[in-house]
Design a protein around this nucleic acid. Structure first.
Lengths: 154, 154
DNA sequence: TTTTCTGCAAACGATTTGCATACAC
DNA sequence: GTGTATGCAAATCGTTTGCAGAAAA
């Protein structure tokens, strides 16, 4: 079963790599825990923390996001809106990756999610044919969301 | 059968939209025809044209790339290397999209391609469940390419 | 105490924009 | 001729970096 990351998980992963547990790294993770399921940019995180009266330098936000992605707690995403976004990974003890794809509406820009693990067979196929050892995949679908379709019918 | 775009295709698509056929737009398309299968950035295209003694402003390259993508001749790609890249679409008269996925080596940064049209069933599934009308998809696989695996074994 | 981290401000690089001129139609 | 496109340079915006001081281990 997929679970959420805790501060303890963060501490453990940092210690394993001789990295330090700092309040800044904690509050960046906290922002994602408080905004579960959202795709936050560095500016988003900075604003969320600022609103919560938690001061942090923007450069530190950038550094923390990259670090949290490197140690597997966050996933870096590119939706083509001019900035990198991140989402919380699932903390799955069985090491099974839990995948969802992103549905990007080309009209209103909304990003929805769709759960699916159907690409594993495709990955096996690619490895067999190309010798490419796959660690991860990202799938983006572009189209028009239900709401925009309904608006367009008027 | 998938075919290449020609200058006539470009002219036709421009005229359909009251846009003008200019030498700059032609040479940008020509750069992609001469570098079939490559993923070119704005700087790449600018350099290719400059090497061919074809002067063009960098801003015009950016504007042409965006325009060619909008009229369906190019496909915009994001590989997370800090710049947008474009590749030539296939000009398929039967309107069947011809898909390939990108395999990105996280070690050497090389981008390979893998032909596959297996996501159509997944698209139908998404449309049925979410009412999202899909126009296109992009799939990126991250992993280690064959060569980097062999180097790592030493 | 030693090493790493933070915050600030400056630097950076890709991309966009304003505007006068040039060109396609 | 009319409206659009180009080229240039300046502006913009997300992101990175150098460095001195602060904090974790």
């Amino acid at each position: 079963m997929a679970e959420q990351f805790t501060m303890e998980d963060l501490k453990k992963r940092l210690q394993e790599r001789q990295l330090k547990m700092t309040p800044q790294r904690q509050i960046v993770l906290q922002a994602f825990l408080d905004h579960h399921g959202e795709h936050l940019s560095a500016e988003d995180v900075h604003g969320i923390l600022r609103d919560g009266k938690l001061e942090i330098g923007l450069a530190t936000v950038y550094r923390s996001l990259e670090l949290l992605a490197q140690i597997g707690i966050l996933q870096k995403l590119e939706f083509g809106d001019g900035c990198s976004r991140y989402e919380l990974n699932t903390n799955d003890p069985s090491h099974q990756r839990h995948h969802h794809h992103h549905l990007i509406c080309t009209q209103c820009g909304k990003v929805m999610e769709f759960d699916d693990d159907m690409l594993e067979s495709l990955e096996a196929d690619i490895t067999a044919k190309c010798g490419f050892r796959i660690h991860d995949h990202q799938v983006k679908f572009f189209g028009i969301c239900k709401e925009c379709q309904e608006k367009g019918e008027n």
